[in-house]
Design a protein around this nucleic acid. Structure first.
Lengths: 153, 153
DNA sequence: TTGAGTGCAAACTCTTTGCAGGCCC
DNA sequence: GGGCCTGCAAAGAGTTTGCACTCAA
């Protein structure tokens, strides 16, 4: 499954004549197999553990490349850094405003909803729409408990 | 209109026992009357022109305060800095991926759509939902023309 | 072979912080 | 009058850049 995903993503890059270096494959594979919304720093630290030696500059270069090809999306969770998420299946994100934890939300209505937004946006602004990112903000279950808010559910 | 808006916003702050300093009023008023999605730096530069002397630190402090009280929302347009927008009427944003220009989109369906998202998100993640931000990315009319893409409309 | 990619470290930009003095409530 | 807010400058964090070397195609 993840292997197919990786092959598929590599195919897309190859079709755009992007050079497939070991570093790029490693980072792409990391993002496909880790749905933890890591920052560049986290990717770097994790990959350093294994014998994959990769510099932080290459991590930044590569994630930007992957974002440009719409394979990965950027997320901000309020901690100052940018987090990344492989975007294989359409989904959106909810960010905990207290601890910054990010969760994925897969909604069947998502694509229909996106189409609606595209339509409205294009009519109203004449912008050419490429993609829509939805970000919900709230409190994760842990932080609700921590803050004594569970009775509010 | 803008005066009512300002009075309304100040009322909200006052009800939370927030100290209403001249700087805070000035910045809030600036954001209510300028729907240009400025960065902290832009607000600072603009206010420096007039005799309002305000430090950049105060601009950062104040916009964060306003974001905390949900009077203002933060936007990223890819230029590295954070932009701010007074959030009087519910709306969302489209960002030009080429030049970074941000436009507002007011959709009547927006609040219904938000409710749907809240529902789905809460059921799926058990997060307590506070707010939903939608950000559409695309190309503004000017950049479409500049890039010779108008025939794609 | 060759030019794009990598690694390193320094530089840069945006934002935050510490502290002394000022002023809103 | 008390304590939060402001202004200044310096520090901090995250990200980008310049350059020499490497390697995928």
């Amino acid at each position: 499954m993840a292997q197919n995903e990786l092959a598929h993503a590599l195919e897309i890059l190859k079709s755009h004549k992007v050079r497939l270096t070991p570093q790029r494959k490693t980072i792409l594979n990391y993002l496909i197999t880790h749905h933890t919304h890591p920052s560049a720093e986290m990717i770097y630290e994790d990959l350093k553990q294994h014998d994959d030696s990769i510099s932080i500059a290459t991590v930044y270069n590569t994630v930007r490349l992957l974002v440009d090809y719409h394979l990965v999306i950027e997320l901000k969770n309020g901690d100052g850094s940018t987090h990344f998420d492989y975007f294989g299946q359409p989904h959106y994100h909810i960010v905990c405003e207290n601890c910054g934890k990010i969760a994925d939300v897969f909604a069947p209505e998502f694509s229909r909803l996106n189409q609606q937004l595209d339509e409205i946006t294009r009519q109203q602004t004449h912008y050419l729409v490429n993609r829509t990112d939805i970000e919900v903000k709230g409190l994760c279950p842990e932080c609700q408990a921590k803050l004594g808010l569970l009775h509010n559910r």
